[in-house]
Structures are given as C-alpha cells and as structure tokens.
Design a protein around this nucleic acid. Structure first.
Lengths: 214, 214
DNA sequence: TGTAATGTTTACCAATCGGTCAAATTATCC
DNA sequence: GGATAATTTGACCGATTGGTAAACATTACA
C-alpha cells in the first residue's frame, strides 16, 4: 500500500536515486531558461521523459524540485571561492580564480542561469543563504584581499567590489551567452571564445588596460 | 461603435498616451522580475490599477506589451555606447562610459533586469536585433578601441571582451542587486555602493590591480 | 514463488491562464 | 445638449496550471 513519498523513506532505492537524478537534470534544463514562475511541471516531465504524476511521486511540489536544485547549485557554485587561498601569492590566486569561474561558466551554464534567474527575481528562495553562508565566505576572502593590499602586494582597492567584478565578468559568458555569440559573430563564437575571454580577463585584472595618461 | 483597437487609430488621444504609459510602467515592474513566461496579464493589470480587458484594449496581447517594452529599452540601453567617442582620449572615454553604465544600473534597474531576463531565456524576441544593430554598433566601437591599442594609447587587448567586461561589471549592480546588498551587509548597502563601485571599476580598468609580480 | 512495498499511469480536480464579447460608461466635438 | 466615437467593465471561454485519487504494474525480498 503506497507508503508516503519516496523522499520520506529512510533508505533510498536504486530507482529513487536514478529517477531523482533524471528529474533534477530535466528541471535544471527548464528552470534555468524560464525561471521558477515561468516553468511548468509538464515541461519538466516531458524533458525527463516521464508522466507528471510520476515526477510528483519523487518531488511533492514544483517548489521542492526547485529547492533541491538550488541547494545543490549553491554549494558547488562557491567551490572556486572556497579554494581561494590566503597563503598563495596574489597573482596566481586571482588568475586561477578567474580561470576556474570561467570554466564553470563554460561547463555549467545552466547552473549559472538558474542562479541568475533567482537573483533577478529578488532571491525569494535563497535570501537567507545569501545573508548567511555566502556573506560569511565573502567576508573571509575579502579580508585576505585586504591584507594583500595592506602589505602592498596589490593595489589598494575595495575587496568586495573586486569579487563582484570577477563574478560578473565570468558569469556573463554563461548568462548572456546568446548576446556574446551574436556580437562575436559566427566566426568567433566557437569554444575558443572562452580562451579569448580568459586571456583578456587575466590581463585586465593583473595589469589593467595600461592606459597612457596624458 | 467601438473602432478597432487604439493602437490602430491614426491619431493617439491624450488618454491613450497616458494609459499606455501606465501600462508599460506596470508591465516593466512585472516582466523585469518574472520574465515573459512567468508574468501574467492579471498581475500587470493589478499593478496598473485597471481591469484586464482594459489592458487588452491598449495592447492586444501579452506579447505586444512585452514587444513595446523591449523596443523602448533596447534603444535607450545603447545610448552610452553610442556616445562613446572615437576622438576623445581613451582614459576619459572609458571612465565616462563606465560611469554612465553604472548610473543606468542605478537609475533603471528594471530595464536592466528585463533585458537580462530576455538574455537568460535565449533572446527569443530580440535575437535579430542582437545580430543586426547591436553587433554593428559594437563592431564600430571595437574598431575604435583597436585603433587606440594600435597607436599604443592603451594595452593591446580584445576590444570585444573589453566591452563585455564593462557591460557585465556595471549591469551586475542592477541584475544581482539582492546579492550585492546581502554581501555588503546593511551598513554598506546604501546608495553609496554605486560610488564605491564606480571608484573601484575606474581603477580596475585604467590601472588594473597593479599586482606585484615576483 | 508469493506478497508486501515501491513505482507508474489514467482520469480527474479546482484555480488560473490569455483572451473575447457585448453592454455600459465616459469623453469629444458640433 | 445630443450624436458619435472612445473607453471601461463584468461575464465568460477553452486551454493550461499545480496537484490528487485510485487503480495498475513492477520490484525486492523472505
């Protein structure tokens, strides 16, 4: 006799793991494009290749699917920042942070867009996480950067806005991908654009544009 | 006897101009948060303070409202880039471009988010404009930047990615406003954050982080 | 192999969706 | 003021929405 819901059982069966994975994969496809409100369970069900009630057997509500996705993305999304090392030297740390974030924009654009969608809507589902864990992590890394500036290793600058600028420039290649490709034109829209972006961004952050003052 | 639709008449009445303005204002509120699919005519009608059939008297479909908004935003959004002057000197041109874009992020965040929403969804309504007028304008300005680099006035760098980086860093303060405020905390979330951002970004682009190599 | 638990589907529900219609109301202009 | 055009609304429509109920199918395990 149909026990509660799969999510409530103690041990997860093989089928549960597999199907939940398929569902979240499909949900990521849909949510990342249309946002929470603009996505429908039917869309997700179709992408996942199963019936709507079957989806709802694994995730009771649309919100539960979204929640599960957001939780997963939030964690992995901050990996590169966590790896930011206070003991490394500024140049290589900043260079590799940029590179890692760019790789994520290239390899996980849907995750980036899911997050962006949530931000655009005012973060109704994750505001607590932003104010809590995210802020704490950024505060910690900002302190590292501040110390570098204090020691004269890099220019004095606002560490928070420095972090914002790395986030925005790198995520741009995932979130605004259509625009980037349209502007670059067909001949420069290959995967090489990420290499070009990496080269440009590393130069920008390390040396700036070296504008000749006059 | 009810003539076609207002939009089809030759001369627009005072009421038409007023109401269309009110509707577009409300539509901007709603579309910029929830995107096209996630927004409903009822929501817009409620914000606009009029009945749904009354909205549809001025704009026949939800798509027509969105279209009208997008057209308006697309035009004004590129003003700063159009003002980019080939004859000016690189430093002041880049500085003032950054400043203007930041002012727009501050003063017209809904317009920025409407555009961002459209990009996230793959630009289904504006892809032609991206490939046409937008690309042309960027090509033109990229050529200016390339000439500056050629003349040794600024560092050699990819002009397209330079433009992308100015777009992304400045629009970030509109599109990711919630995140920026959450991370900065209450004490630094006042309007002063735009001043801080301007100072940081001008430094970044002009001088870079001046990382000490070793 | 039998049976209980797990998984899947068809049929359905009330609410909301984008949009229409005709009637009622208001503004405009002679 | 009256005729006419412009504006506004309540009632309504079929389609789609998130979600449920219950019957049916499959799996796991003793």
């Amino acid at each position: 006799m149909a026990i509660p819901r799969a999510a409530k059982t103690q041990r997860r069966t093989r089928i549960q793991e597999e199907k939940e994975e398929i569902i979240l994969e499909a949900a990521l496809d849909v949510f990342s494009v249309s946002g929470f409100r603009g996505s429908t369970i039917d869309q997700i069900a179709e992408v996942a290749g199963m019936s709507k009630p079957n989806l709802l057997y694994y995730f009771r509500t649309k919100e539960a699917m979204h929640r599960a996705l957001i939780d997963r993305v939030l964690f992995t999304w901050l990996e590169p920042l966590r790896a930011f090392d206070a003991n490394g030297n500024p140049e290589s740390e900043i260079r590799s942070y940029i590179r890692r974030k760019l790789e994520m924009a290239r390899d996980f654009p849907r995750e980036s867009r899911l997050f962006a969608n949530e931000m655009l809507q005012g973060a109704p589902h994750v505001e607590d996480e932003l104010r809590g864990p995210l802020k704490s992590l950024v505060d910690e890394k900002a302190e590292v950067i501040r110390a570098w500036a204090q020691a004269g290793k890099i220019a004095r600058c606002d560490p928070y806005h420095l972090i914002f600028s790395i986030w925005s420039t790198t995520q741009h290649y995932a979130d605004f991908d259509v625009q980037v490709r349209a502007v670059l034109g067909q001949e420069h829209s290959g995967e090489g654009r990420f290499e070009d972006a990496a080269r440009y961004l590393e130069q920008l952050f390390v040396d700036g544009l070296r504008i000749r003052h006059n």
